[in-house]
Amino acid sequence: MTEAFLSIENLSARVAAIGTPILRSVSLKVIPGETHGLVGESGAGKSMIGKAIMGLLPRAIEITEGEIWLEGRNLLDMKRGERRRIIGAQTAIIPQDPLTALNPSRRIGPQMTDRLTHILGWAERKAQVRALGLLEEVHIRDPKRVMHSYPHELSGGMRQRVLIAAAFAAEPKLIVADEPTTALDVTVQKQILRLIAELKAHHETSLLFVTHDMGVVAKICQRVSVLFSGRIVEQNEAASIFSNPGHAYTKSLIQATPRYDRPDESLLPVDPAILEALDREIATHDRQQGTADG
């Protein structure tokens, strides 16, 4: 058994002021080189898991228990500065919305090299050379011009390519891709997906791939965690999840998957009865937690 690079154990989080649970005892492991899919409906808490790893949870949300291990060290035990350094050197995010992920008033170049110069302490020139190389790797035709551009001069797809390049620039060991294609046109989505897979293979990075699209999971993930309302309801090899989904919710997610080969086909919505059953299940779980704690 390979040592996990990232291991989240029993992570629970809630809205501090009102106690609403956001994550409920989430455990998941990402081993080196693996692509781990994190699926679930919008609002399930997928982004919160990514943010918890990065130490970027909104102020309103507090972690109540659990551990996040990165290369054998618990991030939640560390001082903020040390944690930032490790996070900055070892991980990166490919964000959902390429529009808000780039600063409109700064040129692309410096935004790409920030991490290299600040965290890795590279000289500016060396960082620029690396950034140019990566822009070529993401198939940007005129990397010099793009480095000098402002974000609004680039299309959505181009911006996402830039962000992918930036994510891989410091050779992180783990990349969290948070629905990296959701904000893009369908035609661009496929290219971006292929690009991520390509760079991931080339750089031998582990990938935590957040999506609500089972079709994408089927294409690129080795293992999958299915999240519902902050709780992991199923976790398995991607292959077996598709051939033999263990949970009714997973099954309905698979049925609700858009098919690129048959885009006009109407989708089956997730059966409300399944959702209700899940809600009940989680309520029971919360009560048990409550009695266990008290």
Binding site: L56, R85, G88, P95, A101, D114, I119
Partner: peptide
């Protein structure tokens, strides 16, 4: 904005992030 968050992750201090981002 997300770029402010990521500036913090890439190791710019809070004050620097305020000025630059």
């Amino acid at each position: 904005m997300e770029y402010v968050e990521s500036a913090l992750v890439v190791g710019r201090g809070r004050f620097g992030t305020m000025l630059v981002e």
